[in-house]
Amino acid sequence: MKKLSFTTPTAQKIYNDYFNRVSRCTRTLPEDDQREIMMEVNSHIYEATLAATPQTEVDILVDALESFGAPEVVLQALVADKKVKQATRTFNPRHVIQALYLNISNGVGFVLFGVIYLLIVAFGTLIVFKLIYPQHTGLFIREGHSFAFGFISELPGGLTELLGNWFIPVVAVLMVVFYFLNTLLFRLLKRK
């Protein structure tokens, strides 16, 4: 991308600082998306400085940047949308978590998505716990009526574990089911 150059060092510094902020706002996106956003903002600022009424270089640039708005505010929705697109495409947990963080304000749907995602992580942790503490992890029943599913550090008397070695496959199936549920929910949210 061809950057704008200014004759006064102050204007150049203001421009560089602004684009550093744009770069920081978009750094979680793929390089192509980052470049696209930088080029679009750069083009807008260039056209705005070109169309400005005669003033000092610094005033023209400051006016153009102020009219565009703070990148942290105006680009937030754009970055969030592109992040969702990337997360849906790759399903890389890092991108999914970043998309969640950026879209948490978009409503209950994304909160629900987050909760299900946490459940998947919790199920995965339970498998590890079952391998390390087999007696303390499982589906427990007490006196035929109260149930507990997960890890219990201090086992009370009268507790029976129901699944035994089947606990790990059952949890793995639950993880797959929740994963597909979340994929479906995420695609629905994206379409919305």
Partner: peptide, 29 residues
């Protein structure tokens, strides 16, 4: 239209005061 030109056109025809940068997320959608 290109982005900056589109913003100016909106400003000419309406009294809507929006930060120019907010147009781009909308165009992306």
């Amino acid at each position: 239209y290109y982005g900056y030109e589109l913003v100016q056109e909106i400003k000419i025809h309406t009294t809507l005061e929006v930060a120019e940068g907010t147009l781009y997320p909308l165009l992306n959608r």
